[in-house]
Structure formats: structure tokens, C-alpha cells
Amino acid sequence: MGSSEKRSKDVMSDIPTFSAENLQNNLKVIQNSRTFLSIIAGVLAGIIGFTGLTGFVFYFVVMLITSVGLMAKAGFSADLYFDSWNRVLFDGFLGGLMSFVLFWTFAYDLVHIF
């Protein structure tokens, strides 16, 4: 992961040194965990019976928790594993939204509508 390369940012900040494959793998992990959590969040929101804005707020909260969790996993030093913080915060955010809405609708219908 090139852990030592990033230590002294003041000297090395202008030359990026990281392994592209590892970076890709890390991003994939983020993507997967976000998708998984958005599906779980959708089912949860549906069962609890959130409607309207509450559901989306719930999604944001879950994604925020995911971000915090990912950061904790990365030891709060994203520089070691990703090229920027935005990756941890926003990657897979919109892709997960679609799955969230689908599973939210599905669970909500099964439990509350019929």
C-alpha cells in the first residue's frame, strides 16, 4: 500500500506514489460495502415504514455511518489507501440510491400497503 511513501507529505506531495491495482481494489471494497448497506437500509426503511423525505434522510444517515465506518477501517488516514477523501465519502453514493429506492419500495409494499 506504500504506507511509508505518504508519510512525509511536505516533501513528496507533488509526486503521487501508489499502486493502481491496490487503489482499484480498495475502491471496489467501498463500492461493495455501499451497495450492500444501501440494500439493507432499503429493506429496513421499508419495514419500519418511512415515507417521503424521512426515507431519504434515513439513506443519508446510513451512508454517513458507512463513511465513518470506512474511515475507521482506514484508520482515519485515507491518504494511505485512497487518492482523496472524496472517494471515501462519495463513491457509490448515487449507485446505491437506486438499489435503496427499489428495496425500500419493495419492503414497504409488502409490509404496509397490502
Binding site: F36, G96, S99
Partner: peptide, 21 residues
């Protein structure tokens, strides 16, 4: 309210995440 045909489309797009998992 969603018609069944549109539910099909919603599934088509929304299940992509599940498949990747």
C-alpha cells in the same frame, strides 16, 4: 402508484447493485 410494467423497469435498473454483489 406504480404499474407492473413500470415495476419491471424499476427492477431492471435497481437490481444492478444486487447483481454486482
Amino acid at each position: 402508484y406504480v404499474s407492473s410494467r413500470s415495476w419491471y423497469f424499476l427492477n431492471l435498473f435497481g437490481l444492478r447493485g444486487l447483481f454486482s454483489l
